[in-house]
């Protein structure tokens, strides 16, 4: 049963999930968890909060699945939930932790740090994370969409529900901000 779901299309999985098939929803989770992780962890860093938000994304998805009409791709729908929850979390954390200079977003994956053979990979991840974290969240989300998800500016605008012009201007400002910061990394 589970094996057959690996090859099933998103529409089949959605229908089966709505019928209460836990395995079908499990397949949706496995199919999109890395995509969600790229958005959430790219924005929040590899922290406990990111794990919580990741779970929240799929719980929200499950609860709103009956309202999914299939007008957009399932991946886009999930991405929107992930973006909204992540930005909300950033706002919430900013409100409460900014005065403590809490930099939870800079935390790196402990299992990657613990592996000495992956020094080069660790360094690569550190550069990407530091570059992302040095940006303001509204620029960071656009860079994460482009760099970590590979979306075009048009797709990014659709997912973030922003005018294309806004995405382009933010991208250009992010470019300016990062130019100097990358030299120091």
């Amino acid at each position: 049963m589970k094996e057959s779901y690996r090859l099933a299309g998103d529409d089949v999985l959605i229908k089966a999930s709505l019928d209460g098939d836990k395995l079908a929803f499990g397949e949706i989770v496995n199919r999109y968890r890395r995509m969600v992780a790229r958005t959430v962890k790219g924005m929040l860093g590899d922290s406990v909060y990111a794990e919580d938000i990741g779970q929240e994304v799929f719980v929200n998805l499950y609860n709103s699945l009956s309202g999914f009409r299939g007008e957009a791709k399932l991946s886009t729908y999930i991405q929107r939930i992930a973006v909204n929850l992540t930005l909300n979390e950033i706002k919430r954390r900013k409100r409460f932790f900014s005065m403590f200079s809490h930099k939870g977003g800079d935390e790196l994956s402990e299992y990657e740090i613990a592996d000495p053979e992956n020094e080069e990979k660790r360094e690569a991840k550190e550069i990407v994370n530091k570059a992302l974290m040095s940006l303001d969240p509204k620029f960071r989300i656009i860079v994460a969409m482009r760099m970590l998800q590979g979306y075009s500016t048009k797709e990014t605008a659709e997912i973030l529900d922003l005018p294309l012009g806004t995405v382009l201007s933010r991208l250009s400002r992010a470019q300016e901000q990062l130019k100097e910061k990358l030299k120091k990394l």
Binding site: R34, K121, A124, K125
Partner: peptide
């Protein structure tokens, strides 16, 4: 990026 070690998962 993934090949370079910049991968994300839960």
């Amino acid at each position: 990026l993934e090949d370079a070690g910049v991968s994300y998962d839960f």
